[in-house]
Simulated assay, not measured.
Amino acid sequence: MNGMTSEFHGLPFWLLVLLILVLLCQSIFLFLDGRKRGYRYWFWSLWGLIQCPLPLLFYLIFARKIFRRTFFKG
Protein backbone atom coordinates (compact mmCIF):
# COMPACT_ATOMS: atom_id res chain seq x y z
CA MET A 1 0.00 0.00 0.00
CA ASN A 2 2.77 2.35 -0.92
CA GLY A 3 1.09 5.75 -1.21
CA MET A 4 -2.39 4.43 -2.11
CA THR A 5 -4.01 7.09 0.05
CA SER A 6 -2.46 10.01 -1.82
CA GLU A 7 -2.11 8.58 -5.34
CA PHE A 8 -3.98 6.08 -7.46
CA HIS A 9 -2.06 4.78 -10.48
CA GLY A 10 0.10 7.88 -10.56
CA LEU A 11 -2.78 10.39 -10.34
CA PRO A 12 -3.05 12.70 -7.33
CA PHE A 13 -6.07 12.23 -5.12
CA TRP A 14 -7.42 15.75 -5.76
CA LEU A 15 -7.40 15.12 -9.51
CA LEU A 16 -9.45 11.94 -9.08
CA VAL A 17 -11.98 13.78 -6.92
CA LEU A 18 -12.20 16.57 -9.52
CA LEU A 19 -12.69 14.05 -12.33
CA ILE A 20 -15.46 12.27 -10.42
CA LEU A 21 -17.21 15.59 -9.71
CA VAL A 22 -17.03 16.66 -13.37
CA LEU A 23 -18.44 13.33 -14.55
CA LEU A 24 -21.25 13.41 -11.98
CA CYS A 25 -22.22 17.01 -12.81
CA GLN A 26 -22.20 16.25 -16.52
CA SER A 27 -24.31 13.13 -16.03
CA ILE A 28 -26.83 14.89 -13.80
CA PHE A 29 -27.20 17.73 -16.31
CA LEU A 30 -27.70 15.30 -19.20
CA PHE A 31 -30.27 13.32 -17.22
CA LEU A 32 -32.32 16.31 -16.06
CA ASP A 33 -32.23 18.20 -19.35
CA GLY A 34 -32.89 15.07 -21.39
CA ARG A 35 -35.88 14.15 -19.23
CA LYS A 36 -37.25 17.70 -19.44
CA ARG A 37 -36.98 17.73 -23.23
CA GLY A 38 -38.07 14.13 -23.83
CA TYR A 39 -34.78 12.74 -25.16
CA ARG A 40 -33.22 9.40 -24.21
CA TYR A 41 -32.11 10.67 -20.82
CA TRP A 42 -30.93 7.30 -19.47
CA PHE A 43 -28.60 6.82 -22.43
CA TRP A 44 -27.15 10.31 -22.19
CA SER A 45 -26.68 10.19 -18.42
CA LEU A 46 -24.98 6.78 -18.44
CA TRP A 47 -22.70 7.84 -21.25
CA GLY A 48 -21.98 11.02 -19.32
CA LEU A 49 -20.72 8.96 -16.37
CA ILE A 50 -18.15 7.21 -18.53
CA GLN A 51 -16.62 9.98 -20.65
CA CYS A 52 -16.08 13.70 -20.72
CA PRO A 53 -16.73 15.98 -22.71
CA LEU A 54 -17.92 14.00 -25.78
CA PRO A 55 -21.37 13.07 -24.40
CA LEU A 56 -22.09 16.70 -23.59
CA LEU A 57 -20.92 17.93 -26.99
CA PHE A 58 -22.87 15.25 -28.87
CA TYR A 59 -25.97 15.97 -26.79
CA LEU A 60 -25.80 19.67 -27.60
CA ILE A 61 -25.18 19.05 -31.31
CA PHE A 62 -27.52 16.14 -32.06
CA ALA A 63 -30.24 16.16 -29.42
CA ARG A 64 -30.64 19.86 -28.67
CA LYS A 65 -29.34 21.11 -32.03
CA ILE A 66 -28.01 24.17 -30.23
CA PHE A 67 -25.21 24.92 -32.70
CA ARG A 68 -27.44 24.69 -35.74
CA ARG A 69 -29.82 27.30 -34.30
CA THR A 70 -27.00 29.63 -33.31
CA PHE A 71 -24.87 29.59 -36.44
CA PHE A 72 -27.45 29.18 -39.20
CA LYS A 73 -30.00 31.85 -38.34
CA GLY A 74 -31.47 33.40 -41.40
Rank of each mutant, 00 (worst) to 15 (best):
G34T: 08
T70V: 09
C52V: 13
L11K: 12
V22E: 04
W44E: 00
L54H: 10
G74P: 07
G34A: 07
G3C: 11
G74E: 14
G74M: 07
L46G: 07
I50H: 12
T5G: 05
I61Q: 09
L16E: 07
L23D: 00
F31P: 00
C52D: 05
V17F: 05
N2I: 15
L30V: 07
G38C: 08
I61D: 10
W14M: 11
W44G: 00
Q51C: 08
Q51T: 07
L16D: 07
F31L: 10
I28F: 09
G38D: 06
L57S: 06
W47F: 14
L18S: 13
K65V: 00
T70R: 12
R40M: 03
R35D: 02
P12Y: 11
K36G: 00
R69M: 03
P55V: 05
L11T: 15
T70E: 09
S27T: 03
R68C: 05
L30A: 01
N2D: 12
R68M: 08
C52E: 08
D33P: 02
L32I: 14
L15D: 09
S45I: 07
W14N: 14
N2R: 13
I66C: 03
L24H: 00
H9Y: 15
H9Q: 13
W14Q: 15
S27E: 02
P53Y: 09
E7C: 14
L11Y: 15
F62G: 02
L24T: 00
N2V: 14
L11N: 10
F58V: 05
F71W: 09
G38P: 04
W47L: 05
L46R: 10
W42N: 10
W47I: 00
Y41C: 05
I61K: 06
A63H: 04
L54T: 09
I50G: 06
G48E: 01
F13Y: 15
Y59N: 05
W42P: 02
M1C: 12
L49Y: 07
F31S: 03
K36E: 05
I50P: 07
D33T: 14
I61L: 10
C25D: 02
R35M: 07
R37E: 04
K65D: 10
S27G: 07
R64T: 03
P55Q: 10
F67D: 00
P12S: 14
I28L: 12
F72S: 09
L54E: 13
L46E: 02
G10Q: 09
F43W: 11
T5N: 08
W42Y: 13
F8H: 12
F13G: 06
L60N: 02
F58E: 04
Y41K: 11
K36F: 01
N2W: 10
L57M: 11
Y39D: 03
P55E: 11
Y41F: 13
W44L: 03
K36R: 14
W44Y: 12
L54S: 11
Q51Y: 15
W44R: 08
D33G: 04
